[in-house]
Amino acid sequence: MSIPLALTVNGKAVKADIDPRLLLADFLRTTLGLTGTHIGCDTAQCGACTIHLDGRAIKSCNVLALQAQGADVVTIEGLAESDGTMHPMQAAFKECHGLQCGFCTTGMVMSAIDLVARHPNADEKTIREELEGNLCRCTGYHNIVKAVQQGAAAMAK
């Protein structure tokens, strides 16, 4: 059984005929080649696969691609300007060295942007609580939190 799927990904209309079993993460990575969305645990725990579905951070490894039918999806590839200028949150992660191996980073950035949208003036405690769904196996949380704070300030400008 193959089902037509139509949605918007990073501002572009996308269409494909897919097996209903296809996960949103695999659709993004395999069908569209957007490999910036990482699959870490594949059990909705680590948050590496976090993307925005209609403006909200979700774990794309735990969502069927068909659940994004007609939706507006933004991945890490959709954040930078067309001239390559990084999103303020991406820039903050780079400047604060908010990453070590980098595997969790794209999910962290996507969660951080959702977090700042809801809590523009989030303090350290709120940031740590709100990032509960994103795990960094390098335990690089100190600089990640610093990056989110700097990114939030830059986004406010």
Partner: peptide, 9 residues
């Protein structure tokens, strides 16, 4: 419940 991403779905 769960974490932010889970609560969003």
């Amino acid at each position: 419940i769960g974490d932010r991403q889970v609560r969003n779905m």
